[in-house]
Nucleic acid binder design. Structure first.
Length: 929
RNA sequence: GCCCGGAUGGCGAAAUCGGCAGACGCAGCGGACUUAAAAUCCGCAGACCCGAAACGGUCGUGGGGGUUCAAGUCCCCCUCCGGGCACCA
């Protein structure tokens, strides 16, 4: 026994030490007999006894769980997917890969407990399951740790991965470690580079100088998606600065419309996530309209543009600046984007962003205006950096110039305003105070005319002497008719929008336009620990792509991480200095690295063929496994990772690599783990260590509590007493099964299909009925709402009932066949939630082969059906009695039973029955007067 | 401001269809076992009223109205909490 145990341990250690980069054996079907042949050695307990009578033994997870870990580690094929040739239906279940911070937190435990329960259920349902795990291993924390501890980022990261892999194995999570993906290793990130080159060839990756988000703490650029309320997504207090930098971008906007349309087909995604993505893409349908700028000095009025500020001030008095006729047009024009072209006759000014080209042109010759515009720009900048760009106090300044409304021919004063964003639409708007809340506010402040061109909805307010109509301004509804709009009068707003857009187009001063909020993805990062961008800058040839055969561009391992700015790679001459692939002359490498969201945009494709050396993945394996059947993770990635992944999938499809449009068929976003009212976090000091929980209560109880406490989509308030409760429950199961296992074993094992006993003893009937009801309930939970809290509650009810009937189990009134059926089914029901205990008890019941390879128990509707049900009887809707009636009784019988009840008779005394409502199986309600 | 969630005992929650509100668990209380404790097992447990008792009554699912024989569940209005978006023209 001891010798065997030692051999077993050695085997386990040998398998264990295979690092993530090592090529493991290919997956084979599980050999159940080989598995069974591996002895599970029992360690002696603390008092030195060597395994006394099992039935006396208490539930000690610390004794059970390590033995099974070793066995599972020695048999990685148990959790391995079968190849695409499998005749089982495929099921790809995936949890979001973690950043290897060094330790799992409870959020991870919860996420993985959900995924693992599902994977195990699907295995037992006879599916070919792919359930992989990997590491999002590039990123800034490794550099910070390097600074702090003087450890190379690679060493730190790989050590963390090893530690976390150990924790996952300790939790008993059933991952296929043979497909493990580690994004910081060259065999992975070389394909980031490869994809980058493919995108560069197609113009999907490009370099441009622009205003970018800069986080001083990260010392790098951030994508728009990584800025939350003007602050860094990693550093919530850190205001993001705007810097002008030359950066690499991926053309996500090429797919704006497709990313939006695709959401319609994702009917198994949470509505919330789809809404967030819709908002982020921010499609807006409208029109661009060109306003000619009135020629300079025309009509004796516009020459005032050259006049001093006091002159102009006079002109700011609303109507007085709007003469009936405009002068002649110059060659300049201002284009505006509007979603309400139907209100164009109500436009009383144009508002331009301070950065607008025309404004820049005007300030060149107008010192006073230049100062005012600079002030507006400063306000914008300050507001943006304070995260208050959304609530900036509106300021504006009249430029002294006028534009001509192409519909009405009217002159409109051109203003510059701080609330107009240069980066959206045309960077200029037509201001319609009567029908836009912002324009209204601005017009009120500066006394601009408010002209109503849409029939107002009126609210009627009763006043002291009758009814008074109060106009609602601004009126922004689109459900009314146009007025004061020339030939478009009396059209509905929506109809007018189409007609007026066509009119503008036909006359050459406008065009229907769709704008998006989505921006191209800035992927350059001025950091070391990421994928080098495979580009070289040559004095002669300029930007040159690194040829495929030179990939991977390896990240140098010897690097000094400092806090000084700039890309660390730029300080390594051996990396920077290279030769141009085109001319062979001296050239410099790109020293920025890629955003780590590149890594996670396609990692789940790599799992299908993680050892593929000649391509990012085996396309036939991807064709088999995709789309992912179930993806599980936190909602915080709704518009980061999940939108990038959808983009990347489409990009790969257009490269001809894959056929699917979407990576994920079904998405589940689990709730946060909170404690004491706020999210568990180190900074708040309210974390609970999974290791502590496992040490105290075992992995089974820790996992099961995370499923039992609340449904998986809600926030979970971690209460340690609850874990103790689940642990007590597992102890009950353990004791119950151990106690009765010897007699259960005395019956022959039944083949699964014939497992339901034909003959049911009177003593066993109650237990069997509850058993089959429980199977039904849990099966429904897995297929439906995933309310595992009620699944586990149902198992608890079952166990409570079985314990009440223990005497009949011991006495033999319940037959050995029945007993075996009951206990085995109980263990099978527990298998998705408590893998260790169920594996242990499965063997204890005299079975070989892993519990995971057993078919999920079937339920017998006949057996599950109650013979008698308790039926509430109400009088006038109030509960008055409960009667016991045969299940499935008809209305007549139910009415008779209700009327015959003593309490009902008494309550009806002296009353007249008006009618009786019978809902079979639900209730009887007697309406009486 | 707009869009999503949510609000049920001391606590986490349950009640897939409108049909016994509070399953299951935690904490609590009582009992059994024990010299004792722990562990375990059995039982009690929404609030209030009446009473010796209770398989007696009333109230009760954030608040107010409504629909219905019947509402935690459906409809209208409101409050609070959480999340997302936000001068995006």
């Amino acid at each position: 026994m001891i010798k065997q145990e030692l051999e077993f341990r050695e085997a386990a250690v040998g398998e264990h030490s295979s690092g993530s980069g090592t090529v493991a054996k290919p997956a084979t079907a599980v050999d159940a007999t080989a598995l069974a042949a591996v002895p599970v050695a029992k360690t002696s307990d603390s008092e030195g006894r060597t395994d006394v009578e099992p039935r006396e033994e208490r539930y000690r997870p610390a004794d059970i769980e390590p033995r099974w870990q070793e066995r599972w580690a020695a048999h990685p094929e148990l959790y391995a997917a079968e190849p695409a040739t499998s005749n089982k239906p495929k099921y790809y279940v995936l949890e979001m890969l973690p950043y290897p911070s060094g330790a799992l937190h409870m959020g991870h435990v919860r996420n993985y407990s959900i995924g693992d329960a599902l994977a195990r259920y699907m295995w037992m349902q006879g599916h070919n399951v792919l359930h992989p795990m990997g590491w999002d291993a590039f990123g800034l924390p490794a550099e910070n740790a390097a600074l702090k501890n003087n450890t190379p980022p690679r060493d730190w990261t790989l050590a963390n991965i090893a530690a976390m892999r150990r924790q996952m194995q300790r939790l008993g999570l059933g991952y296929d470690w043979q497909t493990e993906v580690t994004t910081c290793l060259p065999d992975y990130y070389r394909w980031n580079q490869w994809f980058f080159l493919r995108m560069y060839e197609r113009g999907l990756a490009y370099r441009k100088k622009s205003k970018v988000n800069w986080c001083p703490q990260c010392a790098t650029v951030l994508a728009n998606e990584q800025v939350v309320n003007g602050c860094c997504w990693r550093h919530e207090e850190q205001i993001v600065e705007q810097r002008d930098l030359e950066q690499w971008f991926l053309r996500t906007t090429n797919y704006s419309q497709e990313l939006l349309d695709g959401l319609e087909k994702l009917d198994q995604w949470p509505e919330k996530v789809k809404t967030m993505q819709r908002n982020w893409i921010g499609r807006s349908e409208g029109a661009t309209v060109d306003f000619a700028v009135e020629a300079h000095g025309e009509d004796g009025i516009a020459e005032d543009a050259e006049a001093d500020g006091s002159e102009r001030k006079l002109r700011r008095d609303g109507k007085s600046v709007l003469p009936a006729r405009a002068g002649t047009a110059s060659n300049d024009k201002v284009s505006v984007f509007t979603t309400r072209i139907d209100t164009i006759y109500g436009a009383t000014s144009l508002q331009l962003a301070p950065e607008h080209a025309l404004v820049q042109q005007l300030v060149a010759t107008d010192v006073k205006l230049a100062q005012e515009v600079t002030a507006l720009l400063d306000q914008q900048k300050m507001a943006r950096e304070a995260g208050e760009i959304g609530t900036i106090e509106k300021h504006g300044v009249f430029t002294g110039r006028y534009a001509i409304n192409p519909f009405s021919g009217e002159r409109l004063p051109i203003w510059v305003a701080n609330y107009i964003l240069a980066g959206y639409g045309a960077g200029a708007i037509m201001s319609v105070p009567a029908h836009d809340a912002r324009d209204y506010e601005f017009a009120q402040k500066y006394g601009l005319e408010v002209r109503i061109v849409v029939l107002l909805r009126r609210t009627t307010e009763p006043t002291g002497n009758g009814v008074e109509e109060s106009p609602m301004l601004p009126y922004t509804g689109e459900d009314s008719l146009l007025i004061n709009s020339g030939e478009f009068n009396m059209l509905g707003c929506q109809e007018a929008q189409h007609k007026m857009a066509s009119f503008a187009k036909d006359n050459g001063f406008g065009t229907p336009t769709v704008t998006y909020r989505l921006r191209d993805w800035g992927v350059s990062r001025q950091r070391y620990w990421g994928t080098p961008i495979p580009i070289v800058y040559c004095v002669k040839d300029g930007i040159v792509a690194v040829p495929d055969e030179q990939l991977p561009i390896l990240l140098p391992q010897q690097v000094e991480i400092t806090q000084q700015g700039g890309s660390p790679l730029g300080r390594i001459p051996s990396f920077v200095e290279t030769t141009c692939p085109k001319c062979g002359g001296p050239a410099r490498r790109e020293t920025d690295t890629m955003d780590t969201f590149v890594d996670s945009s396609w990692y789940f494709y790599r799992y299908t063929s993680a050892k593929e050396a000649s391509a990012p993945f085996d396309t036939s394996a991807v064709a088999y496994w995709f789309p992912i059947d179930q993806y599980i993770g936190g909602v915080e990635h709704a518009i980061l990772h999940l939108i990038y992944s959808r983009f990347w999938t489409r990009m790969m499809r257009d490269l001809g690599l894959i056929k699917n449009d979407e990576p994920v068929a079904r998405l589940f976003t689990q709730g946060m783990v909170i404690r004491g009212g706020s999210k568990m976090s180190k900074s708040k000091g309210n974390t609970v260590s999974p290791d502590d929980m496992i040490a105290r209560y075992g992995a089974d109880a820790t996992r099961m509590y995370s499923l039992f406490a609340t449904p998986p989509d809600r926030d979970l308030d971690w209460q340690e007493d609850g874990v103790a409760g689940v642990s007590r429950f597992l102890g009950k199961v353990h004791r119950l099964v151990m106690k009765h296992a010897p007699r259960a074993r005395s019956s022959e094992p039944q083949p699964p299909t014939a497992a339901i006993p034909r003959e049911v003893s009177p003593a066993g009937l109650k237990s069997l009925r509850k058993l089959h009801q429980t199977v039904r309930k849990i099966t429904q939970d897995f297929q439906g709402r995933w309310h595992f809290n009620t699944s586990i509650a149902a198992i608890m009810e079952l166990v409570n009932l079985l314990m009440l009937g223990e005497a009949s189990m011991s006495s033999g009134e319940v037959s050995a066949v029945e007993l075996r059926h009951i206990l085995e089914t109980l263990v099978l029901l527990l298998a998705p939630f408590a893998p260790y205990l169920s594996a242990e008890l499965w063997e204890e019941l005299g079975n070989t082969g892993d519990v995971l390879r057993q078919p999920w128990p079937a339920f017998d509707e006949e057996l599950a059906r109650e013979e008698e049900v308790e039926l509430p009887v109400q009088i006038n809707g109030k509960l008055r009695s409960v009667v016991c009636v045969p299940a499935g009784a008809d209305e007549k019988t139910l009415t008779a039973a209700a009327m015959a009840d003593q309490k009902i008779k008494a309550a009806l005394d002296g009353k007249q029955v008006v009618k009786v409502i019978v809902v079979p199986g639900r209730a009887v309600n007697i309406v009486a007067r």
